[in-house]
Amino acid sequence: MSTFPSRLLEGYKTFMSGRYTAERDRYRQLAETGQEPHTLVIACCDSRTAPETVFDCGPGEMFVIRNVSNLVPPYEPDDNLHATSAALEFAVQALKIRQIVVLGHGRCGGIKAALDPNAAPLSPGDFIGHWVKLLKPAAQQIQDSQLMTSGERQIALERISIRNSISNLRSFPCVKILEDRGKMKLHGAWFDISTGELWVMDPQTGDFYRPDLPLA
């Protein structure tokens, strides 16, 4: 009989004796009153870029959607299954979240796949291949640039994908209406795994810059 992963049980033991004990009242409050997160973060499912870790947030502070390459598909109200759209709908309509951050990152495997026209499917379903086709127009333009190195093309598409996801967020009426009324803010950010640097997107120009951090 297979056993539950021991590393997870060890981590749970540490959690119960450490963080849970320190924040017991917070967890009980969340259980009784429900969640009221202040921010929705749409991030990549890459194990190296957990938003709760990057932004040092505690339980109940952020509602997080994670998928390959932190992509937001366009609004498509049909009978297909739309996990990211469903979570977005719940965050905006049910939880009343009014701050959305699309968080990309360096060395993203999904972005690398989007840039490789000869990438072989990982399975007959080719789910990743179909998913990253959301970036196909931008990827093709970058692939054709002979003036960029492979690393430059990778970073360029990682950041373009963030802008693309924000554009697709605006195709959802529940987001667009609130933003037009000044009641919704959309943000882009890019995290460099190797250096820990966080770059945020200027909402007017789309450029990325290092923000001034609050003084301790």
Rank of each mutant, 00 (worst) to 15 (best):
F90T: 09
N80G: 15
F63A: 03
L95K: 08
E76V: 15
N70M: 05
Y75V: 08
K96P: 00
P59R: 11
A94P: 00
V72M: 09
N70K: 07
D78F: 09
P77R: 02
H82W: 09
G58C: 08
Q93R: 15
H82E: 10
P77A: 12
A86I: 00
S85K: 06
Y75M: 08
G58S: 12
V92N: 07
V92W: 04
L95C: 02
Q93I: 06
S69Q: 02
P59D: 05
E76M: 14
T84H: 00
V92K: 10
V68P: 08
A87N: 10
A87R: 04
E76Q: 15
M62K: 12
L95D: 01
N67R: 03
F63T: 05
N80K: 14
I65G: 07
A86H: 05
A91H: 02
T84W: 01
I65Q: 04
V68S: 01
V72Q: 07
A91G: 03
V64S: 04
V68G: 04
L81A: 14
K96Q: 13
Q93C: 15
A86Q: 07
G58W: 03
E61A: 12
P59W: 10
T84C: 12
A91F: 01
V68N: 03
E76I: 14
L71A: 06
E76D: 12
P59N: 03
R66I: 08
A83H: 14
L71V: 04
S69R: 08
I65F: 03
A83E: 13
L88H: 00
V64Y: 06
H82Q: 08
L71H: 04
R66S: 10
R66K: 10
R66W: 03
P74I: 11
P74R: 09
L95F: 06
L88E: 02
P73C: 11
V72Y: 03
P77V: 02
E89T: 12
A87S: 15
K96L: 09
L71C: 07
S69P: 00
P73L: 12
V72K: 06
A91P: 01
L88F: 05
P73D: 13
V64A: 07
L88T: 02
I65D: 05
L71N: 10
E89H: 12
Y75W: 10
T84L: 00
E61V: 01
R66D: 11
E61P: 00
K96F: 10
A91E: 04
D78I: 11
P73K: 10
L71G: 06
V64Q: 00
S69M: 04
E89C: 12
N80M: 12
P77Q: 09
A83G: 15
D79Q: 14
S69E: 07
A91M: 05
L81Y: 14
M62P: 00
E89N: 14
G60S: 09
P74K: 13
A87C: 14
A91I: 08
N67S: 05
A83S: 15
L95S: 04
V72F: 00
N67M: 02
S85C: 07
N67Q: 01
A87F: 08
A86R: 06
N70R: 08
P74T: 09
P59K: 06
A86G: 14
V92L: 12
D79I: 14
K96V: 00
G60L: 13
V68A: 12
A87L: 11
A86L: 03
L71M: 11
N70F: 01
H82D: 08
E61D: 13
D78L: 10
F90Q: 05
L81R: 13
E89Q: 14
